[in-house]
């Protein structure tokens, strides 16, 4: 991949459509060196198609609004430089395909917020002092998960949601990350293992790591969230040795 900054004439194929139907539409424009896909889309919106719908906000890869599928891969439009894409072929820009389309590049991601409401939030352990203190090692482990910007590209690329449409049985990688951040919090007082195994459906994940590959924040979703959660479920449900040694329960945590 060349890091040389190049501008020049480029062709984009942008998905235009509504809730029912849509198609890729060709656009051409002259680009400047260092432009990102979002720049090109906004330029087309400003100069050619004022009704082109696109969701964006910070343009700094921190708000998670401009998620799209660029050349077939989920990526943030504001973080994908044109000169990092093949120059000899058109750039396709499509909405996230795991979510219902609203219009053009805008999708309805409200399902994620409904899932989020199902997760019991941080609940401090009984008997904690008013001032919450935790060590740096614990902070480091949990803070990786707090980097999530909720772009939902991990949800988009997860084949359980995208291809098999098991939204009723699986919360998706983003919420495995949230569950991990709570389950590994040293001051939290809830044991969410049954929720993780049953309602959240961690067993449906077959660890193909696509969520990790697309995460713009570089969160090791599979290795640091999903696999540890699977192992915690295995501790309680599939490990007879731990049962023999009566290590089943988790001290200081109430089952939810």
């Amino acid at each position: 991949m060349s890091t040389e900054m190049k501008g020049g004439h480029r062709q984009l194929k942008i998905w235009r459509g509504d809730r029912e139907t849509g198609q890729l539409v060709d656009y051409e424009l002259d680009t400047e060196p260092g432009m990102v896909v979002l720049d090109a889309v906004l330029e087309i919106q400003a100069s050619q198609e004022p009704d082109l719908a696109v969701r964006w906000n910070c343009k700094a890869a921190k708000c998670g609004s401009c998620s799209a599928e660029i050349n077939g891969k989920p990526q943030l439009m504001c973080k994908t430089r044109l000169d990092h894409l093949p120059a000899d072929e058109p750039i396709t820009v499509e909405p996230m395909r795991a979510f219902p389309q609203v219009r053009d590049l805008v999708t309805d991601v409200s399902w994620n917020y409904r899932v989020n409401e199902k997760i019991p939030p941080f609940t401090p352990r009984e008997g904690l002092p008013n001032e919450y203190l935790m060590g740096q090692a614990d902070t480091d482990r949990v803070s990786e998960f707090r980097k999530c910007i909720e772009c939902f590209m991990c949800q988009d690329v997860c084949h359980i949601l995208r291809d098999h449409r098991l939204q009723e049985k699986y919360y998706g990688p983003r919420f495995m990350v949230r569950l991990a951040s709570l389950d590994m919090h040293p001051l939290d007082g809830l044991d969410r293992t049954d929720l993780i195994a049953d309602q959240a459906g961690v067993g449906l994940c077959n660890i193909t790591k696509c969520c990790t590959e697309v995460c713009p924040e570089g969160i090791k979703i599979t290795d640091n969230a999903i696999i540890p959660l699977k192992e915690r479920v295995a501790d309680q449900r599939y490990d007879p040795l731990l049962k023999i040694f009566k290590r089943k329960g988790r001290q200081g945590r109430k089952k939810v």
Binding site: G22, L24, T92
Partner: peptide, 19 residues
């Protein structure tokens, strides 16, 4: 100026069957 693209296939849209 824009024209409808036919050369490249898009990803299956939400709700469409996926081969």
């Amino acid at each position: 100026m824009s024209t409808t693209s036919e050369a490249l296939k898009p990803s299956p849209a939400y709700g469409e069957p996926r081969k």
